[in-house]
Design a protein around this nucleic acid. Sequence first.
RNA 1: GUCCCCAUCGUCUAGAGGCCCAGGACAUCACCCUUUCACGGUGAAGACACGGGUUCGAAUCCCGUUGGGGACGCCA
Length: 591
Amino acid sequence: MTRKDKIFYGVMMIKDYSAKSAQPQPKITEQIAALLFNGQAGLLSPDHYEKMYPPRTLPKGAMVTRFAPSPTGLMHIGGVYMSLINKRLAEQSGGVFFLRLEDTDAERYNDDAVNTIVHALTKVGLLPHEGVVGQHLGQMQQKGNYGTYVQSQRKEIYHSFARHLIERGLAYPCFMSMEELDDIRAKQTLTKQRPGCYGKWAKWRDASVEQVQQALAKNLKYVIRLKALGSYERRLTWHDEIKGDISVPENDVDVVLIKSDGLPTYHFAHAVDDHLMRTTHVVRGDEWLASVPLHLQLFQAFGWQPPKYAHVGPIEKLDTQADGHHSRRKLSKRSDPEANVQYYFQKGFPVEAILEYLTHLIASSFEDWRRQNPEKPLAEFAINFKQFSPHGALSDFDKLTSISKDIIANLDAETLYRRALEWALEWDQPLAALMKNHVPITKNALNIERGGERRSKRLATWQDLRSQLFFIYDELFQQLPSLPFTDRPESDGRQAILSKFLKDYQPTWQKQEMLDYAKEMAIGFGFAPNSKTFDKNPGQYKGHFGDVMMVIRVAICGARETPDLWEVMQVLGVERVRQRLKNALHHGAAR
RNA sequence: GUCCCCAUCGUCUAGAGGCCCAGGACAUCACCCUUUCACGGUGAAGACACGGGUUCGAAUCCCGUUGGGGACGCCA
């Protein structure tokens, strides 16, 4: 066993806690629990749930992981990132990846959220094996034997475990009002003390049965708080799979376990659910790191083996302050459009590009692996906690774009057409219509510079299709307000080149024949045979060979940047080529 | 205010005391190739935050400083 593998949980288990604290007043805590829960006659015992959700039978070393989003609206790119990590870890170890809906905040709940999440995960191929997999006609669709995976439907379970804690003196009802809480915090801030409900501030911690009874009689709202086991003077050490060994003061705050609306807080639900769902590894954003002492204490209170924790640094963005200084911050779904996965879909990044980019963020060694295994499915790249860096990563669109170019460049024309059309159908219907009305020419155009040794990377995203394809469609070509000729040669020179080329053009020309012809023509018109010659004596020539080709290119394609001109001409066909040359001449080869 | 985490080129990072006057990828620049743009090729520039230790030797270990991030809710 290496130092890093050492588990610290065992050390901090306080075995005789219940004997020490609960013994003096076991009856009282049971009476209080009874007061609180007698109305819920059907409440089952924790034992019942333990049997209902037995340990999973999985191969040794199998990881059970999860993605636990709260349904507040959009799908954050970080959510895809977390799903990717969790799903890979589970699959690579022969385990299970499930999705649990953390919908315990009634105020932030959003109706479409589940569909948004599931739709996004479906799209990127990261649907969970178990848990919430959809929503149909207002009904959650779920898979798996450890459900329900919707927290708002698990109220009885949380209450059962909360009652258990209260009976044993490990939790208690607290009737403090919001105003009282605000007061306390104000006092604490003023006197520079730690904020929170702990020690002497936790005034309901040791309340009598009578006090509870009276408060209930007055119909006061209450929450259930943890009776914190820790002392701020002592330190707790544990091992995080990514951050390493961490040491902090123990938790002594009586945090809320059950809110006054009866729903659990994140912390309590995490402990109960991840225990009952038999999660082995909790891999989540590192904003949760500071709650680990509390979470470990909850597991300790129940006498459960806690899961292993891995806290992943966030995807960040560079923020420029008013004073010009730069600072990093987590991508915010409110102010950063690129926080939303939908943004990447709309931009037209292929799903593989998004996933490979995120994988690169997990482990930059991925790019070496990819170079060595260009054909292998991404899922075969093995990830492990050692590869994670402990800090967050800046989102880098240049890198994403580069990956995306590589991926698109490696698609064959048929696949490219299918994928591109799929995207256009959703995001650019006019283009989709053209693609569908002109299938052969579109596929031929997409096939240019494809498949050979040197694949062009002119398409970075599906959004680039339009600018790369418009000139093969007369419908779009004719909408061009003008032809983007360059200054060299001027209009007369352009006229001369175009009319001669039109006259001599042979549709049977092979590529080299056409280039040979064009070069001869260029020289005949007083152009240099190549740019090097021209650059040496610019005064002697009207321009160079490339300039002549550019005139023809612009006339035929209406663009200065195109794939190989001869290839484009083959795709367009003789008629259209002649037509466009004539058209350019007709307009006096004007810009 | 308290607590925690983090710190290598612009970015993602490799680096587990000598293989490192620090390697790769993206981005940038130059040149070459070339019918334009891409592609491809070659090359350049570019980092161990700072200060102390420990050691024969430190990017790597320790301490401190600075900087960045996070947590301290009946939000997750």
